[in-house]
Design a protein around this nucleic acid. Structure first.
Length: 347
DNA sequence: AAACCGGGGCT
DNA sequence: AGCCCAGGTTT
């Protein structure tokens, strides 16, 4: 029995039931695929249900504001996915007659869709023969075939794409693609793969050589930057100041508070010095949090929140927005800010 | 080719 | 603490 039959047989027995399977609607598949980019099924599932309900069709999606799309996306991370989805929804409605593309050639031209996502949607919705190569496929193939080419090199991407394209079941490419990814997610896991109950136990090169813990190979070594954020929660009666992050930085188009960023850690006394320079009116420090560590994939943030009572709210920049406490949950905030707001009642 | 872009869960 | 997740875009 060859690779494709083994992997599909495994899938028929062990796969999970998920709401975006059993449909060939490319719109619904697109929703699920974008949400699941670099995101585990367990984390993405509630967002898929939320988006499906809020936007039953591509037209509903396009009619929404970007701010509302980001509000629904709040907490999921990699917010460019939401911004690109909104642009793509409008493009499809305005330029493609609201008909969601099904072919790889058309899909690959859309914002936010690369080789993986175009292969996934076209194979699931139209049975086009395009092999998906995601993190699961890299892992499964590198182990079973004993391939040590780094998966984050251009040569590696080409090599694994070619191999997956040779192995794919041309009669049912969608089922094959689902199968190999599900196999990677459930059986051939990154840590502690279930090799003792694996249908490839007799043929897997990594298992034979005891190399499952080193394959797949990554060149990796991403260095991350440390930043120090002091958020100013300026309060007058039942109002505060927020601003939209329009600059080219993390959390683009989300909202947060007036921010002092320092290149090195500062004491509370030093921050109060800075506050005296910036805030022209009198103010009283009602509370300050201990530094909160917030890890991103490429940055380490130390975040403090300063609750400051002021006699009136002075606009620092024209991006600033005065909002009352009861309206604040209309806006999309980064997780670390949202966490603060849910713990500390503003009053 | 390398850097950038979140947040969560597992080990 | 380190790694990885149904990746893609920008530099």
């Amino acid at each position: 029995m060859d690779f494709k039959d083994k992997i599909i047989d495994w899938y028929r027995i062990y796969h999970r039931e998920l709401p975006w399977r059993n449909t060939t609607d490319p719109y619904k598949i697109w929703l699920s695929e974008i949400i699941l980019q670099q995101t585990r099924v367990k984390q993405g599932l509630p967002y898929y249900l939320k988006f499906s309900e809020a936007f039953p069709t591509i037209i509903d999606f396009a009619n929404a504001s970007e701010d509302y799309v980001l509000k629904l996306w709040e907490g999921l991370g990699y917010y460019s996915r939401a911004r690109n989805m909104h642009k793509t929804a409008n493009h499809i409605v305005d330029k493609l007659g609201a008909e969601f593309p099904k072919s790889y050639a058309d899909l690959i031209q859309l914002k936010g869709i690369g080789d993986y996502t175009a292969s996934a949607i076209s194979s699931f919705s139209a049975n086009e023969v395009h092999a998906v190569v995601d993190g699961n496929v890299f892992r499964v193939l590198s182990r079973i075939y004993g391939i040590s080419t780094p998966i984050d090199s251009s040569l590696g991407k080409k090599e694994f794409k070619n191999l997956a394209s040779e192995l794919i079941c041309s009669n049912n490419p969608g089922l094959f693609n689902q199968s190999i990814m599900e196999f990677g997610a459930i059986q051939c896991t990154p840590k502690n793969p279930k090799c003792e109950s694996c249908p490839f136990e007799d043929s897997c090169i990594a298992f034979a050589k005891n190399q499952t813990d080193v394959l797949p190979i990554k060149k990796n070594a991403i260095k991350q930057r440390t930043r120090y954020f002091e958020y100013l929660i300026l309060i007058n009666e039942n109002q505060t100041i927020i601003k939209k992050r329009t600059e080219k930085d993390i959390w683009q188009n989300l909202f947060d508070f007036p921010l002092i960023e320092n290149p090195s850690p500062k004491s509370e006394e030093q921050i109060i010095e800075q506050l005296n320079q910036i805030i022209t009116t009198s103010f009283k420090v009602a509370s300050v949090t201990a530094p909160i560590k917030h890890i991103l994939s490429h940055q380490k943030l130390w975040v403090r929140f300063w609750k400051l009572m002021v006699p009136d709210l002075v606009i620092f920049k024209n991006k600033d927005l005065i909002v009352s406490f009861e309206d604040i949950d209309e806006y999309a905030f980064p997780k670390v800010v949202d966490n603060y707001l849910s713990i500390h009642e503003l009053e």
